[in-house]
Write a protein that binds this DNA or RNA. Sequence first.
RNA 1: CGGGAAGUAGCGCAGCCCGGCUAGCGCGCUUGGUUCGGGACCAAGAGGUCGUGGGUUCAAAUCCCACCUUCCCGACCA
Length: 569
Amino acid sequence: MKWSEALIPTLKEDPQDAEVISHKLMVRGGFIRKLASGSYSYLPLGFRVLSKVKAIIREELDSRGCQEVLLPAVHPPEIWKKTGRYDLLGAVLIKFKDRSGKECVLGPTHEEIITDLIANNIRSYRELPQTFYQIQTKFRDEPRPRFGVMRTSEFIMKDAYSFDCDIEGLNKTYKKMYEAYCAIFERCGLPFIPVEADPGMMGGNVSHEFMVPAVAGEDRIVVCAKCKYAASTEVAKTDGIGGRAKNQKEKTLPIAEVETPGITTIEKVAELLKTEQIKLVKTLLYKADDKTVAVLLRGDFEANETKVKNYLKCAVLELADAATIERVTGAPVGFSGPVKLKDVRIIADNSVKDMANFITGANKKDAHVINVNIGRDFETKEFVDIRMITPDDGCPACGKAIEIKQAIEIGHTFKLGTKYTEVLGANYLDKDGKENPIIMGCYGIGVNRIMASLIETSNDKDGIIWPLSIAPYSVIVIALNIASEVVKKMADDAYRKLLKAGYDVLYDDRDISAGVKFKDADLIGIPVKVVIGERNAKLGMIEAKDRKTAKVDLIKSEDLTSHIKSILK
RNA sequence: CGGGAAGUAGCGCAGCCCGGCUAGCGCGCUUGGUUCGGGACCAAGAGGUCGUGGGUUCAAAUCCCACCUUCCCGACCA
């Protein structure tokens, strides 16, 4: 492609509305442009990167026997109601009415659709196992799209679905997909970490997320350098108080109410009462489906809502609103406590178990109670692990020090089991003629996120540094002074030869200054610059410069193709 | 949805507090010329409902009200 004939609108300055580096560079490099919050156009350069990522995905999946399909994006709501996800997804599901007034939904994912297809077309164990995938646009009305292409309401997902006769089969398929994922991310040049994860609204029990550590990441993961344990903080197990200050054994003291006017936070209560946060118990009121539940944690810990949700086995868990809190406790937000709390299930984190004489809200405006003791002042038998892991905790697997990192989720795999196949009637007949539900797995990759994550982890002050595998072009031929006959002739020739040799070549034939060309080439991150200047051209020489290492090779013009071949192997 | 910030030329910004005449600057763009190895220079140009609507005023980019949009934090979320 000749740059003079391409739409590559590079920008000198960071766009005003971009925060994270990948977003800034994608806009500056002319890869994307925003249409509205959470929806982006991919320009030719951006599209080329996506295409390369997709090609890698297809190669790795096809070679493992997966079959590509294309499912519809517009769905009837009934199928979503059957599995209960119509309500579960709620506002995330984008709905509209067609001309006859019939409701339609835009697919946020495709378990329902593929399972329905399989239910109607697979009958026998002889037809299993099979795995299908598609690369398609998904639609989700995100509460807050952000970070450019990282979280958008319309995004490209590679989703795959496997169907097996039994758990052993699923385990084999899952392993195969896991390996495919590793191969895909490896080839894309991403420093990824597979971690244990929570299946969330997808369902099933076993699940892994593929994470790229990056400051712009929206998720947090726990990694252990010693034993290779890696998990999402959502599921990382904790044990009591971990590495933090132990709860002191004390003689129980008489409970007493203290005035704490307008003091509603753990921090301020501790300050006012001249004590430490570890002497306080935090009482969080949640709405778990339709019931109100009180969650107790030692003051210095945070609740882990995923754990609470999984423990309670509820579909929707959210912090109770102010009105509910007032109704249940009789006090405004900030003064809740377990003492004399009526008709509310109380569950406590293990960190609270051996606490004595602690402080909680008094369920009364502007008051807390001190010297509270479990068993005497209130009762709960439910001590569970429902807190967020901290850097002070030991590795859940080996006990050694852990690190908590921010990361971008680029892939997620799930062992779904029969969650969808049972409700949608996807059954098969086994050897004995007995009908069984098909065992399912599903596997997603955020294609746009691969692009963003790569940039997050591979850039410098001059711009993006693409790996050859997903670079929009492998080589950029830069004719420094295109007005010079010698330069133009040699550059045209180099461009032609490299194209003929099968390389993706971008030819910067614009009649502008050298500085702009160098800056632009670095910004868009093409792995190799082939530079043709007048002085060298007259000597029959060409320069090849590596974007990443800045290493320069001066070569004879006739050796160009073989030289490029040697550095781009 | 709660909290915060911002909308002025294609992009990045100043002007607004303290209302005033043809609304500026840098980059980019067009034309001509000089340059030509890391965002060149000279000259001449084109380009604006100052987010939208209403109000106050002799007069509004500037003051007041409402709304819209975007970004950040939170909530939420494969």
